[in-house]
Design a protein around this nucleic acid. Sequence first.
DNA 1: CGGTAAGCTGACGGCATGACAGGACAAGTG
DNA 2: CACTTGTCCTGTCATGCCGTCAGCTTACCG
Lengths: 215, 215
Amino acid sequence: MTGQVRTVDGRVAGRRGQATRQKLLDCLSEMLSSSPYRDVKVIDVARKAGTSPATFYQYFPDVEGAVLEIAEQMATEGAGLTELLDGRSWVGKAGWQTAQELVDGFLEFWRKNDAILRVVDLGAAEGDKRFYKLRMKILNSVNNSLSDAVAELQSKGKVDKDVNPAAVAGSLVAMLAAVASHQKGFQTWGVKQAELKPNLALLVHLGVTGRKPTK
Amino acid sequence: MTGQVRTVDGRVAGRRGQATRQKLLDCLSEMLSSSPYRDVKVIDVARKAGTSPATFYQYFPDVEGAVLEIAEQMATEGAGLTELLDGRSWVGKAGWQTAQELVDGFLEFWRKNDAILRVVDLGAAEGDKRFYKLRMKILNSVNNSLSDAVAELQSKGKVDKDVNPAAVAGSLVAMLAAVASHQKGFQTWGVKQAELKPNLALLVHLGVTGRKPTK
DNA sequence: CGGTAAGCTGACGGCATGACAGGACAAGTG
DNA sequence: CACTTGTCCTGTCATGCCGTCAGCTTACCG
């Protein structure tokens, strides 16, 4: 799938090269967690990695390029979110559990990768197609599964005909992502995390099935 | 409310000064719409405004400071979103209309100010309290109204006791904001704006009242 | 051991930042 | 009209980051 890792000037990266490359990515990642995206400088990343700015430019065209790389790694990892939904039922008590586990897994994933996801979100919102595709890739698994679930319930007549499965699924996923991004915000608002989750799960369940869960 | 407009070095700005100041803000605003936040430079804003970088620094400590100013202006303007909900009913057909109008007005507001709202969202997500407060200020009107609506329905026994009004309201508002930020995204997904709105309204209605709307 | 390619960096021109001092300008005063 | 006062803007400068290149060091291989 992925060809050889290459430097900007076309050389193939060997063992050592890949190590420095990865170290730069790690340091950048850390940097993004601790300071605003706008203030992350190449020279700081390089210093943190114990190398020089020139080395950075050997592996990445610019900061954005490196961020895309990190996000790509995370995206493949995030494909595992499908497991939260594959083959799950949306009926009865099982449906309520599905909703809860989805919310749980999603928030956890977002919390782990919040720094990089913020940047991806920004890039996508700014209209950058690369970031937009990446965001799709991350959310697609969940989105498609949700969309399928709605469509299936719809075909059984359990959901109104005029509901658009893709629109509902996309909106719910956007909600999960947004809430995850501003988890701290809710806390200051007087809503604790433990309270937030069941209410989110309720909204997801309502959105997918159109009815309240049986707990 | 607001004291006199002051320059960084403490002078009070007069007629002419306020004009250039505003012009700088306008140009910055425009700039944010056309290029990534990370790439907006003081020198470009100054050039666009037909002045020099030094002038910019006379009125604002940095780009972030100016952004906060713009966002503040928008926030007071955005308080008008309350009208979308004040005194509206959530029962029967009126409830469905309330949901629709809320979605409509919200998306429109977001579309108008998307560039600056992106930056506010980023700042808030990064943990900057100033941006966070600003985001609250913008969303508070809608959020409180929604929260009140849920609480009222709850007191009448129409909504389950274990629902947390603030959590539900906050999540719904976050959903609206997120979907608005990525409106273009949905389009590429094969969901058209016209289809998106009613489905969003459905989700809002479901979330607030716990039941499907009567159309 | 010598050749070859990978890996890294010092150094440099270019540009943005942010501060200051001083000049231009408008308005009021005698 | 000259003079004063305070606002408004810019030229200039030290500083620091960007992004590139030539060239040095290191590792691998026959």
